[in-house]
């Protein structure tokens, strides 16, 4: 079974982004406290990435932390490819994970649902389900978005479906 390798991988990566301790959705009173943990985890993860020279995204939210937008990038053959992504916090958060959209890639890959939602079904949702409510937005990006980009973008480049 793939669990042993994936477990090591999880632990190494999760270490750089602190997990959440508060279980709350935007409909709960405790949401501001959860949101604070989300921001803190993201800021720490980004600063770690910068230290290690592998900064790969930028992100910000609306006032209430319900809608998030950002940019992520992938470098290949000395060229940087940048994509805008966005997601909203679903009503059952953190029991269900947000769905990340990269609208500009819609129609270019089969690993995407209608509206530009990237497919997280197999590689990410089970992991999230096992780790709710500890995992937050930083983990969504680390284990959801990042592997998708790492697999899909080189493939799209090879097929000539994206250019500079």
């Amino acid at each position: 079974m793939a669990t042993s390798t994936s477990k090591v991988w999880d632990k190494q990566l999760v270490g750089s982004a602190p997990v959440m301790t508060i279980n709350a959705s935007p409909r709960d009173e405790k949401w501001p406290a959860r949101l604070k943990e989300e921001y803190t985890s993201l800021i720490q993860y980004i600063s770690k990435n910068k230290e290690n020279g592998n900064d790969w995204f930028k992100i910000e939210s609306d006032k209430e932390g319900k809608k998030w937008i950002g940019k992520c990038w992938h470098t290949q053959n000395y060229t940087k490819y940048e994509f805008s992504f966005e997601f909203s916090i679903p009503s059952a958060y953190p029991n269900s994970a947000p769905e990340i959209l990269i609208p500009e890639l819609e129609g270019k890959t089969a690993k995407m649902y209608k509206g530009g939602k990237i497919c997280l079904t197999d590689h990410f949702y089970p992991l999230w389900a096992r780790n709710t409510p500890k995992y937050g937005i930083s983990h969504l990006l680390i284990f959801g978005l990042s592997p998708w980009i790492a697999v899909e973008i080189p493939d799209l480049l090879e097929k000539g479906l994206i250019s500079k």
Binding site: A2, W9, D122, P126, L127, P147, W148
Partner: peptide
Amino acid sequence: PPLVVATGLEASLKKEGV
């Protein structure tokens, strides 16, 4: 939750099409 018992993380990404 049914997803908690799902396994196999990395391999699934390489599956053709969703």
